[in-house]
Design a protein around this nucleic acid. Structure first.
Lengths: 160, 160
DNA sequence: ATGAACCTTCCCATGATGGCAAAGTCAACC
DNA sequence: GGTTGACTTTGCCATCATGGGAAGGTTCAT
């Protein structure tokens, strides 16, 4: 594709062809939202965000409302929500008749999942610390850590 | 392939062709180790475990030492070690001249990684609980959770 | 006009696991 | 001997969120 020129305007210069005031390219959208350009394209491809506008030469353009949505997604990812969950959150965000109960329930479910994972990892950490504590950590080959890994599951008590 | 018969023996019947006493098929190895047949094949394909023996008809066979190694891998996965790390642990396990210091260091590094992830998830959980607490969770559309997600990063204080 | 710094699409990789399909094998039973 | 069911084999595709890179087009400033 190589049609006429018409660039996303972020300066004060006016463009006649389209009223793309204040729209930016994907790189600036990435900087402004904290979502990488790569991921913005990805989110668009899986339908998490609507297809971006395009300049006549094919460059994606982002308006302030698009940046707002991207920031929303970024923040939700930072809080650990999955893409599926964010999809639901975005729908609720855009729904003026939503009930906050739905949002809260979704959030609580996510909190529960986090708690499950945290507990799991803490159990791992606990067991490992126990083992590391028992290990001399010197030049000798004796190693309770390897002994534990190599232990028959039945015989040796794995209950730390 | 369809050569002569010769099966992995797990009963008391004797097989003349090869001395495969006590060797089992992949399904039994899976049951005995807790590693799925699928993953056993996968571990073999990426070189984590040596290629299993084969019957004349191509079935993989596992001796007690193989099961031992599989149990080692399973236990290490349960403790959250990555495949790369388990590779190193297996090497140390098989090295009589090893120093326990290396094992301990590897373990400590893993503990540190776990701690990092746990802290990260706890921060998420904390923030989410804060927000969920502020949310009515009723039929009204007012929702501090969505408000937070939609907030401009600069203005609203994200410091919970 | 040239070059830097963008942008586009497309393909591949990660890590650990699961699923499915088509085909071959084994043991047991009638 | 034939059938049946429970195994096994390989291979390809999917997940989830992200990054890397190639090959080529665009924009803009020097």
């Amino acid at each position: 594709m190589k049609p006429a020129r018409s660039r996303a305007v972020n300066t004060s210069s006016v463009n006649i062809s389209t009223i793309n005031m204040g729209t930016v390219n994907i790189g600036d959208a990435a900087k402004a939202s904290g979502v990488s350009a790569k991921m913005i394209r990805h989110y668009e491809s899986i339908g998490l965000i609507p297809s971006a506008g395009r300049t006549e030469s094919g460059y994606r353009t982002y308006a302030e409302s698009d940046l707002h949505r991207l920031r929303f997604v970024k923040r939700a990812r930072t809080l650990g929500f999955s893409i599926k969950e964010i999809e639901a959150l975005l729908a609720l965000w855009g729904d003026r008749r939503r009930s906050s109960a739905k949002v809260k329930a979704l959030t609580q479910k996510h909190i529960d999942e986090l708690e499950g994972k945290i507990a799991e990892m803490q159990a791992m950490k606990q067991a490992l610390q126990q083992l590391a504590h028992q290990c001399h950590g010197d030049d000798r080959p004796d190693c309770p850590i390897l002994d534990d890994l190599a232990a028959e599951p039945n015989r040796a008590p794995r209950c730390h």
